[in-house]
Design a protein around this nucleic acid. Structure first.
Length: 409
RNA sequence: GUGGGUAUAGCUCAGUUGGUUAGAGCACCAGAUUGUGGCUCUGGGGGCCAUGGGUUCGAGUCCCAUUAUCCACCCCA
């Protein structure tokens, strides 16, 4: 038996319904915030991700589905969504226009990781990217947008924010952090020691309790910000407060992708296991430039759809549509013709196996149909239909014309 | 990449210290005075006990390997 590949799942039945429900809600909210839909290719030039996500990140280092295609191009299945949208933004020369552009997208992402709860190799993200707006009001608004999506879906979350500083303050902070870490070197774990040179900020994020202990009095980025980053961060916090969005400052919050600067945020759920980040995002003012576009400030986020799946409860489904059954196979042709007309406007299921009335009613009930329509011997003889409303519990016998007229067909 | 757990019916799981024909619930199908649903009762179909090796008179049960899967580390949404 051929099974789906490791870390890949079929999406069907209730999960499929939840997925569509999520997309519908999220897209509706995103559109209200001025975002329009964009779909970019799943396969991209490997260089795109190396240059955007960053060579130092694990994603690029060891998790990419990368291969050489038949034209000998080095290609890669996208591990995240932002790079593709930024590439689209630049390829279409939108960076040369002065306007502001906002896009939302959703679709599959691929990372070659060991699967566990909330972590698949093929997973889906819904994300938004806003280009051309440097104001901190946009930082606030995009966080508000994520919150609005979760609110629309009745999902509980905790919001954590941080500022990663800019070109001015980040390098200085980095220096002082490295200095601090060098002193503690022997007491830190292997991974942390490696990170001191590769990506020192990530040390702050280490889950090892011994490391955490050592890092208590590490210099904090939030107290090393330059005046403009500092005032933006303060403004962001007050905007969140004014608008009733609860948050916690987490000065150890580091986004795993190299392109972030200034505002970084994460939405976390305590109800879904170890992989608790349900959305993450932040500002990436330098990324467009890195990818050969004109310098353009930008900010975005992504929601992990699978992570949020268990937190969604679908509205209860009402009985609807028609079930058509026959008690004798001679009536089938007749049933099919009626079904064809009905299908212009209704969901219709025809059972081809002749059954007793009781079995048909049972089946109609099982599939949540509103109406059960049965053609038996009597109906066949005098050209009528027997129809029962499974909700109102009333039944009727109509001629075919009467029935079609009643349904305006 | 590193740990640990699990693998028996379509699904959720029982299965005694190894012992005859493999169990339940759910789901499915059929019946319970002639053509009336959701409840109930009765019956039925459905298993290479993940795969491959061992140990044994005898293995679903014990041992080894492989594979899959889950959870955690790591990483991240």
């Amino acid at each position: 038996m051929i099974k789906p590949l490791r870390g890949m799942k079929d999406l069907a039945f209730e999960d499929a319904a939840k997925f569509q429900y999520f997309i519908e809600k999220a897209a509706t909210v995103a559109k209200r915030y001025g975002y329009s839909y964009v779909e970019t290719p799943i396969l991209e030039d490997t260089a795109l991700f190396k240059r955007s996500v960053g060579e130092s990140s694990d994603i690029v280092n060891k998790e990419m589905y990368q291969f050489i295609d038949k034209g000998e191009n080095d290609v890669c299945m996208r591990p995240e969504g932002t790079a593709g949208v930024v590439r689209f933004f630049i390829s279409n020369k939108l960076d040369r226009q002065q306007g502001k552009f906002k896009f939302f997208y959703y679709g599959p992402m691929f990372r070659y990781e060991r699967p566990q709860k909330g972590r698949l190799r093929e997973f889906h993200q819904f994300g938004c990217e806003s280009f051309g707006e440097a104001s901190v009001y946009e930082d606030y608004t995009i966080i508000e947008l994520v919150a609005a999506i979760f609110d629309a879906l009745n999902i509980k979350y905790e919001l954590e924010i941080n500022s990663l500083g800019c070109q001015e303050c980040m390098p200085k902070y980095r220096e002082s952090l490295v200095e601090f870490l060098e002193k503690k070197k022997e007491k830190l774990c292997e991974d942390c020691n490696r990170r001191i040179t590769t990506n020192p900020i990530r040390v702050l994020d280490c889950k090892n309790p011994h490391c955490k202990e050592q890092l208590v009095d590490a210099p904090k980025i939030t107290s090393s910000l330059c005046s403009s980053c500092e005032s933006d961060f303060t403004k962001l916090k007050s905007l969140l407060e004014q608008n009733g969005i609860e948050y916690k400052v987490n000065s150890n919050l580091v986004r795993g992708l190299d392109y972030y600067n200034k505002t970084a945020f994460e939405f976390v759920s305590s109800e879904i296991g170890a992989q608790s980040a349900i959305a993450g995002g932040g500002r990436y003012d330098r990324l467009v430039e890195f990818l050969d576009g004109k310098p353009t400030p930008a900010i975005g986020f992504a929601i992990g759809i699978e992570r949020v799946m268990d937190l969604i409860s679908l509205p209860k489904e009402q009985k609807s549509g028609y079930y058509i059954g026959v008690m004798d196979s001679v009536a089938l042709d007749y049933a099919i013709a009626i079904a064809k007309a009905l299908k212009m406007s209704e969901t219709v299921t025809v059972e081809y196996t002749p059954r007793k009335l009781k079995a048909h009613l049972k089946a109609a009930d099982k599939m949540n149909a509103r109406y059960c329509l049965v053609i038996g011997e009597d109906e066949l003889q005098n050209g009528t239909l027997w129809i029962k409303d499974l909700v109102e519990k009333v039944e009727d016998r109509l001629s075919q014309e009467q029935f079609l007229k009643r349904n305006k067909l």
